[in-house]
Structures are given as C-alpha cells and as structure tokens.
Amino acid sequence: MDRDEEVLEAPYRLEYTYQRSTGPVIGRFLGALRDARLEGVRTASGSVMVPPLEYDADGAATGEPTVVGPGGVVTTWAWVTEPRREHPLPHPFAWALVRLDGADSAMLHAVDAGSIDAMRTGMRVVPRWQDERTGSIRDLACFVPESAAAAAAAAAAAAAASAAAAGDDRPPVTMFPSPVALDYTVTAGRHLSAYLRALAERRIVGGRCPVCTKVYLPPRGACPTCGVPADAPVEVADHGVVTTFCIIRIPFDAAPFPPPYASVAVLLEGADMPIFHLLRGIPPEEVRMGMRVRAVWVADDQLGPTLASIRWFEPTGEPDAPHDQIARHL
C-alpha cells in the first residue's frame, strides 16, 4: 500500500437543522414541558408510559394523557466524567433512567448530582427546569437529587409556568428545530488522491484496466465491469468532445454562475468515459453534442488538487466530431 501521507484528507462537517413535526402525542408532551409539567400516556394495557408515544411496545395506539411526577426514582445510571459537546451539562453528571411517580416506564435524562458519590440506583430525583422553555426535551434541564430545596424550586417553577400559561394562548407545540453537526475527516483514497494531485500540475491522469484496457477518470480500485484495479496510469489530453449536456436555467445554492449556463459531459482524448464540467465561451443555446472543447486551467497560483483546477471548458472551434464517435458515450 502507498504511504498514508500521499492520501489527501480534509475536514467535513455534516450539518443541518432538521425541522421535526411532532404529531399530537409528542407535541402535547413537549407542550407540557414548556409549562414545566410532566405527562405520560395510558397504554391499552393500563400502564402509564413516559415519555409518551403514539403507540405502546406492541404497536397498539395509546390513549389518554395523564399527569406524572414531578419526582421519580433512578432505575439505572452512568457517570460521565468528560461531557461531550452535545451533552446537556458542561460538567460531570449522570445519565439516568428515571421512573417518574405514577409511571410504569422510565425516561432517560441527565442528573446533576455534583459527584459520582451522590449517585445510587433507587435514589429520588426531581426536575430542574430551564428558565427559557421552547417545547423541547431540553426544556427539562436535568433532574437533581431530591431535597427540600430542589423540590421547592421545581414547584415554584411549575407554579410560575402555570400562572403564565393561564393568561397565555400560546399555540400547541407542533414543531421543533433539531440541529445536527457531525464532524468527519474525509480521505480521498490513494487513487483519487493521485488523480487530484496530477490536476494540480495541469495533468489529467487516468487509470487503465488491464483486462478491458479502458481508461477511467479517475483511476479506480475496481474496474466496474472487470473487478480488477483500473489503475495503470495513463495521461490523457485536456481536450475532447461533448457527448451530452444540459443547460441549467434555474439558480440554486451550489450554482457556479447565474443561469443560464451549460453543464457538459466531455470525452477527453485518450479516455474511455466522460467527465462532467462546465462549458463557457459560447452562448448556451449553441452548445451541441459532438462539439470539440478544451480545458481552461486556472492561473498557476490557483492550481490545487481539485477538479476546480480546470475553470471550465471552451470550444476549440474545430469541426464537430461525427455522431458515431460519441454514440456509445453519454
């Protein structure tokens, strides 16, 4: 295997804020959390499920909501010494399953106990509410070990919320935003890395399959039709023929230019499959299948291991290729 340092790497964050629609049962529970209250739902068998779902463990629809808690019992727990970025508390805390008073199932949340020595299975806990509540599981900041002071604080929060809710006609909770950010280190693999590095030198280097002799761009760990590596290096030309194209006439996020512009498949001389790129230097309505085009490279100081080292393609002005030259390519 090639040395690892020849493989390109880059950080990548998969990030999106999902819009969760809750449906009636989850929405009602989150609405109760917003009012500093805890509710469960009664299942067909008569047990009380917290947090409530539209269905019980056997798929049957659940019934009426019912008030639970606010206190409960820890049924199991785990102690986190080094909280992660996405955890609810920034200092050491416990995760716990808490069976709220009046409930038959336990709910997962954090317990802010101060020390692992304060945690034990069977201990009683009460909720600590966020000051600002929006209708999310995180409106419940965490649980805390039950004490007179903690119980009083929870009761006061609930009373204040109840008073506020009385004169308030906030709409029920139906949606909440759910941000997700996952960090990855993307690697290009050795074949793609070699291809991209060559582009930084204004060279286009494909890989030939030893069985079918086709030249692939980029080289591949497996020829898609023969199953053996298609990686014998072959430098191909930076000019070729348009095999097909489309004219983009709508603006969208990743668009490189204002529309209209042409996206083309170019069969480079020496390669057996086209690459996709942009075509400039001709009005979009004049782009043709069979048109001969050449790469326009970026300036030397902008070259890098990326297909963007080719700014776009432009027509060479030579006569079009005959149709049979492109008929078997797209």
Partner: peptide, 16 residues
Amino acid sequence: YYLAPLGIDAVSLAAL
C-alpha cells in the same frame, strides 16, 4: 424527539 436531542452517546447508553 426524546433521545437524540439529549446528545446521549453510544458509550453512555452501554454504561446504563
């Protein structure tokens, strides 16, 4: 709705 927004990770779940 109830679990992923808390950010609980796989090791913590196994620890429970």
